[in-house]
Computed example of a mutant assay.
Amino acid sequence: MTNPFTVSTRTARSGPIVTVGGELDVATAPRLRAGIAELSLAAGQLLVVELAGVTFCDSSGISALIAARNAAEAASAEIALVGVPSRLARTFALTGLADFFPAYPTIEAAVAAHG
């Protein structure tokens, strides 16, 4: 049995927080991309993408995360990944994306690092 995909967004003073759960793959990555595209990011904000609930992530999911980073960069905002599962962190390390995505254990740590 697979975990159903979920994506939700809330707004904090630092910027939007997107929480992702379940399998982030070719079937669900478009929903994450669409959710990110609907955000109103402003210069200087921090886009937090919380991934602790992600049970699987394929290349389509990674591509959606790169698109999120690009959207933040286009808005002169920053991005932080939070609660990255160990298997996904390993994939980031192996593919050279670990330096591409600032990652933090908690939302609070990401916001504190952002200033």
Rank of each mutant, 00 (worst) to 15 (best):
V18H: 03
A42V: 02
I36K: 06
L41T: 01
V48R: 11
A68D: 05
A42P: 00
S63F: 08
I36D: 03
V111M: 07
A80K: 05
L32E: 07
D58M: 09
A113W: 10
G53N: 13
L39T: 05
A72F: 03
E23A: 10
S8P: 00
A77N: 04
V48K: 08
N3S: 12
I66C: 02
V82D: 09
R87T: 07
G22S: 06
S40F: 03
V54N: 11
R69Y: 04
E23F: 03
L97Y: 12
E50Q: 15
S76K: 15
L97Q: 08
D58H: 12
M1K: 10
L81H: 05
L65F: 06
L47Q: 02
L46N: 02
A93Q: 15
L88G: 08
I79F: 04
V18Q: 05
H114S: 03
V20D: 04
G61N: 13
S59R: 14
A29E: 07
E73A: 02
R33G: 02
V18S: 03
T9K: 08
G83M: 12
D99E: 09
A112K: 14
V49K: 09
I62A: 09
S60T: 11
G21V: 01
L51M: 12
D58A: 03
A77G: 02
R10I: 00
G53W: 12
I17G: 00
S63N: 15
G21S: 12
H114E: 04
I79M: 10
V26A: 12
A42S: 11
A34K: 14
S86L: 13
I107G: 04
T19W: 06
V54K: 13
D58W: 14
L97T: 08
D58E: 11
R33Q: 10
P105W: 07
E73S: 02
G61R: 15
V18P: 05
A12I: 01
A75F: 08
A34M: 06
I79A: 01
C57S: 14
P102T: 00
I36S: 02
A113H: 13
S40P: 02
Q45A: 00
L47V: 00
R31K: 15
S63A: 15
L39C: 09
I62V: 15
T19Q: 09
A98N: 13
V26M: 09
A93P: 04
V54W: 14
G115I: 00
A52N: 12
F5N: 06
A93F: 09
L94T: 07
A64M: 11
L41S: 01
A93M: 11
G21D: 06
G21R: 14
L41K: 05
T19L: 01
T55S: 15
V48E: 03
